[in-house]
């Protein structure tokens, strides 16, 4: 039987085709199957929600808003774009295919375009096959990655960066220094890398203490780098020294209250 992907579509209230029932969720009549979750504005789509949608077993997530520069909320669509851009980079580190997430633009009146976007995306996801997170036995590695990513998107560093992106690039920082897009992307990539690894470490040492060596082996990273992350995490009060075993210090995650 042909694989029929489960696709969740986050659509804003204003780009939602009329055919959709407005109760909040639903499947568009006459369109290729897609599961609609309505929000007022796609700017509302918290990265955490997208990742949680994958955890819940979606094979693909499609976010559709009005074409820029039109937006019922001036630039909610552009805010969403920044978040999705960051998310795709983050997801690519977890082992889940970033192609399972797509952002596209369409107006409510563009029924044909809607159908094309949905069709296209469905084909793309169908080619990728079922999500490693869907089904009874999700892939443990990918799940660990996504859980770490979820924790990262719930934390302040990437959220602050995404939130400030427009301001930094268009208006400059407090010293009126404007940041070039490339420069910003570099900082963003670096932050994603660092925070993602730190988040993985935190989750790994959540229930059992581990050494730097052990963590490095598990994550396939240079132990020196792992040590540097441990230093930061200890500094932030997220990880503490648990005990020393055969001269190896073992670290454990701290509960954050």
């Amino acid at each position: 039987m042909m694989f029929r992907p489960k696709i969740v579509g986050f659509l804003c209230n204003w780009s939602l085709p009329q055919e959709v029932n407005t109760t909040g969720t639903g499947i568009i009549q006459g369109y290729p199957k897609i599961r609609i979750v309505r929000v007022m504005c796609i700017g509302r789509i918290d990265p955490v929600i997208v990742l949680e949608t994958f955890v819940k077993g979606a094979d693909g997530v499609l976010v559709i808003g009005c074409h820029p520069p039109d937006c019922h909320y001036i630039e909610g669509n552009l805010q969403a774009e920044r978040k999705i851009k960051m998310l795709k980079k983050l997801i690519s580190r977890t082992g889940l295919e970033p192609e399972r997430l797509r952002l596209d633009w369409a107006y409510a009146s563009e029924t044909e375009l809607f159908a094309t976007i949905i069709d296209d995306f469905r084909t793309q996801v169908a080619v990728l096959g079922p999500s490693p997170l869907a089904g009874k036995k999700p892939d443990e590695n990918v799940l660990a990655g996504i859980m770490a990513a979820k924790a990262v998107t719930g934390d302040s560093r990437l959220r602050t960066l995404v939130g400030r992106e427009k301001e930094l690039i268009e208006e400059g920082n407090v010293y009126n220094e404007k940041v070039e897009q490339e420069e910003f992307d570099e900082v963003m990539n670096e932050s994603i890398d660092e925070e993602y690894v730190r988040s993985r470490i935190r989750l790994l040492v959540k229930d059992r203490p581990m050494s730097v060596e052990g963590l490095a082996r598990h994550l396939g990273l240079d132990p020196k780098k792992v040590l540097r992350h441990i230093v930061v995490l200890r500094h932030r009060g997220l990880v503490a020294l648990d005990k020393i075993e055969r001269e190896d210090p073992l670290y454990i995650a701290l509960e954050v209250t």
Binding site: V39, C41, G43, G154, G163
Partner: peptide, 18 residues
């Protein structure tokens, strides 16, 4: 406030809800 929820989805401390 027009209720778009952008702030909620962006708040670094997740201190804003809808």
């Amino acid at each position: 406030c027009k209720g778009c929820g952008t702030c909620s989805a962006s708040c670094p401390e997740r201190a804003i809800g809808m």
